[in-house]
Design a protein around this nucleic acid. Structure first.
Length: 780
DNA sequence: CAGTGAGCGAGCTTCCGCTTGACTT
């Protein structure tokens, strides 16, 4: 029986520490928090100094029982949760819930999982820091107040089940404002002039022959650009200036959660959630250190092994030991940076994704302790006789590759290698001849939408959210339908390219795709309307600095300068009346509603707004004797941009097309797009056909096609057993009997099944497909 | 697979931060 119980937050960590401490110590994990505010109710006693009402969540009950039992049997309990606000609170909750007594309880902390760090921690125990715990309680209570008071206002004013919170609402705001910028953006035309020139005295054979360069001025009009090209026909080009400057390039610091998510997104195309899933599995199998961290710090042990690795494989000159400092707001630095546990492992075994991510982490870690790259940058200015504009060219020569070496070593296509191009040797006064001069019509670009990783970056800069919540926040705002991760297909645009070559000027029209963005976060109508509402009525909460402001208060609580309930009371005093006020506001129009005009036929008003099930258009008003008509917006339409004409069109659905085989055919737009209804059956209208212009003949054709493909689905029927059919599905033949699906075992030839075979298959329980059960479980 | 929405009704939804789990085609 061990004399000591050590409790940490993560089971993987527990396993490692167990190895360091040996059998006198039993190391267990709390799996994060063991207690929280009650899930259902507000659970803050406002009248009683904002006393929080805690509960042990159901899924933690057995764990807590086990911890209690373990604590009873030992001399000393060591609370070894992380050294940050949340970790301190976990220690305190454990202390309370397990009923530990002061004599036998120690609080210890360490920032890195190394034997020496843990032994040192055990030598230096302390008491639970109640001020830090109070700072956590303030954080927790504030978030509950904001979330649980704000959300019901949205249910009442916009639509049920929506949510708002200190973090998610600001995340949506960032996206909504960017979207507004894009909507307001007016693209402007300009002309960019570039050229390729050849030095007249080319004698060095291995140097590049051509100088790519660009004019230092953009032209607003085509005429100005053409005028320059005309001028270039007879102009002389001379090197006017050559500047050679040494530049130093420094490696990036080791990964934190947020930078790992950004790099994995850029270089590997991983989503934020995917990165975390893969990193989790690397962590659990012991390949990397903890993946939820805001620290760029490396343990001295790690710096030692990394230095040795660099010296041994690349040489001393590539080594430069560096200490990085975390600059991000609100960082709590309870862990190390994300790094390989053993830097000597250049590769690991695992899935393809695990290998790729590990490789990225390995390179970044190694590079972070390597020498700067020394680059010589040459900037050249080329004058045009008779004009003031200049052509500019630049080239770079790597004098010492330094940390860049680890990128060059493996020429992995997925890893972007920095590009350096060199110039031919040039000196002032050298004369050049133009091979061609090209003026290209360009348009100023609309701002980019956020990718998941870019959003995380921005949130981190603002100090909003924590490493453990970046990925969940992104799923929440999508689950609420505030944001979709989507494609904006972009539009084709043509542009002109005017080329001067061999004293001739020619014009070509080319096309390009603009605004084509994949996997970007796009706010929905609901997201835009909710954001407008929240920023208008609760500007203090939606303020980008709100979190930073409350964080400084939490810091003061942690330092013992302020009492947490006083701070919360102060906040509540101003916040709660706002909630009451806005909640009882009688608004003339529904939030986000737009009046589009009147229907020319009936004269009734047409409006667009967010309904209980999403965006809709309304024809007629509720005060009218006649009930108003409603129709949902189509996927590509939006509350902000729909016109009266487009809205009126929506009311044309559902529409009766005529009759086919004596039964009515109706076209309508449903949840899954346009469809036909005929004789109680549904047929989808293909994407290339418009439901507005479809004719009864088209419809009849579609119905027949559907029947034909249906017929192919049924392979066999038996007169004796009408409830049994052999069907042709996506994965081959299967049997349907009394609405249950059965697999056909391999020993049968599916095309030659007899009724007896089928009965035998159905009677064997083992052939029953479990598909239905899984769906039922997923619904929960 | 296949719209609903304007008022008698019943009760539900929701926050942020810690941490993993496991019904398998």
């Amino acid at each position: 029986m061990a004399d000591n119980l050590v409790i940490v937050e993560s089971p993987a960590k527990a396993k490692t520490i167990q190895k360091f401490l040996g059998k006198d110590y039993k190391v267990m994990s709390s799996y994060g928090h063991i207690r929280d505010l009650e899930k259902k109710d507000f659970s803050i006693d406002v009248e009683n100094d904002f006393e929080p009402i805690y509960e042990i969540p159901e899924d933690k009950l057995t764990l807590v029982q086990e911890l209690k039992k373990a604590a009873k049997g030992v001399k000393t309990v060591w609370l070894a949760s992380d050294e940050d606000r949340e970790g301190e609170a976990i220690a305190w909750h454990l202390n309370e819930v397990l009923g530990l007594d002061k004599e036998n309880t120690r609080r210890i902390v360490f920032h890195e999982i190394t034997k020496s760090a843990i032994l040192a921690a055990i030598e230096n125990p302390r008491d639970i820091d109640t001020n830090l715990v109070d700072a956590q309680q303030a954080r927790r209570v504030l978030d509950r107040i904001v979330g649980f008071e704000l959300s019901p206002v949205l249910w009442k004013k916009i639509k049920p089940s929506l949510s708002a919170g200190r973090v998610q609402s600001v995340a949506v705001r960032l996206l909504a404002e960017r979207e507004q910028e894009i909507r307001d953006f007016k693209s402007e035309e300009y002309y960019r002039v570039s050229s390729e020139m050849e030095p007249n005295n080319t004698n060095e054979s291995d140097a590049p022959a051509l100088v790519p360069c660009e004019l230092n001025k953009r032209f607003a009009t085509r005429d100005e650009a053409v005028e320059l090209l005309e001028h270039c026909k007879n102009a002389t080009f001379k090197v006017a200036d050559v500047q050679v400057k040494p530049i130093k390039k420094c490696p990036a610091p080791p990964f934190t959660t947020s930078t790992l998510q950004q790099e994995a997104s850029r270089k590997l195309g991983f989503s934020v959630a995917q990165t975390m899933r893969v990193a989790q599995s690397l962590y659990e199998s012991g390949h990397i250190t903890y993946m939820r961290t805001d620290s760029v710090n490396l343990s001295s042990l790690a710096i030692g092994t990394i230095s040795k690795e660099i010296k041994d494989s690349l040489g001393e000159q590539y080594l430069k030991v560096r200490k990085y400092h975390t600059s991000s707001k609100g960082a709590q630095e309870a862990h190390e940076a994300i790094r390989p546990t053993f830097i000597s492992n250049h590769d690991i075994s695992g899935t393809a994704q695990e290998k790729k991510l590990y490789n990225l982490i390995w390179k970044r870690t190694i590079a972070s302790q390597m020498a700067d790259a020394q680059v010589e940058k040459t900037q050249v200015e080329i004058s045009i006789s008779g004009r003031n504009e200049l052509f500019e060219a630049s080239g770079e020569v790597v004098k010492f590759d330094g940390f860049l070496k680890v990128y060059f070593e493996t020429s992995d296509d997925e890893i972007a290698t920095p590009e350096f191009h060199t110039l031919p040797p040039l000196k002032v006064g050298d004369v050049l001849t133009e091979k061609e001069v090209v003026a290209t019509q360009r348009f100023t670009q609309q701002p980019n939408r956020y990718s998941e990783a870019m959003l995380v970056k921005r949130l981190e800069e603002l100090g909003i959210g924590r490493p453990s919540t970046y990925a969940p926040t992104i799923s929440t705002i999508q689950a609420r339908d505030y944001v979709v991760k989507g494609e904006s297909k972009g539009v084709k645009r043509s542009f002109e390219q005017i080329t001067l070559k061999g004293n001739k000027i020619t014009t070509k029209t080319k096309t390009e795709l603009v605004g084509n963005e994949k996997g970007k976060l796009i706010p929905t109508d609901v997201g835009m309307v909710v954001n407008d509402f929240l920023t208008k009525f609760f500007p203090q909460i939606l303020d980008y600095n709100f979190t930073a402001k409350v964080e400084t208060e939490f810091d003061e609580i942690a330092e013992g300068k302020k009492k947490w309930n006083d701070e919360i009371k102060e906040f509540y005093k101003s916040f709660h009346p706002e909630i009451e006020k806005v909640s009882s506001l009688r608004l003339e129009h529904k939030v986000g509603e737009r009046i589009l005009g009147n229907d020319p036929e009936t004269g009734k008003p047409v409006s667009v707004k967010i309904g209980r099930y999403g965006p809709l258009v309304q024809l007629g008003s509720t005060d009218d004797k006649e009930k108003p008509r409603f129709a949902s917006l189509q996927k590509e339409q939006s509350v902000a941009t729909i016109t009266l004409e487009e809205a009126l069109k929506l009311f044309e659905m559902p529409r009766t097309l005529g009759t086919f085989e004596g039964k009515e055919v109706v076209v309508a737009i449903g949840k899954y797009g346009p469809y036909l209804k005929h004789d109680g059956k549904f047929v989808s209208v293909p994407k290339d056909m418009s439901p507005y212009s479809i004719t009864i003949d088209d419809a009849a054709e579609l119905i027949k096609e559907k029947r034909a493909s249906e017929a192919k689905k049924v392979l066999m029927t038996f007169d004796e057993e009408p409830e049994l059919q052999v069907m042709n599905g996506r994965f081959g033949a299967y049997i349907v009997y009394k609405k249950e699906n059965y697999k056909i075992p391999k020993k049968y030839d599916a095309s030659k099944l007899t009724l007896e075979d089928c009965r035998a298959i159905v009677n064997d329980e083992g052939n029953l497909s479990k598909g239905g059960k899984r769906k039922a479980a997923a619904k929960k």
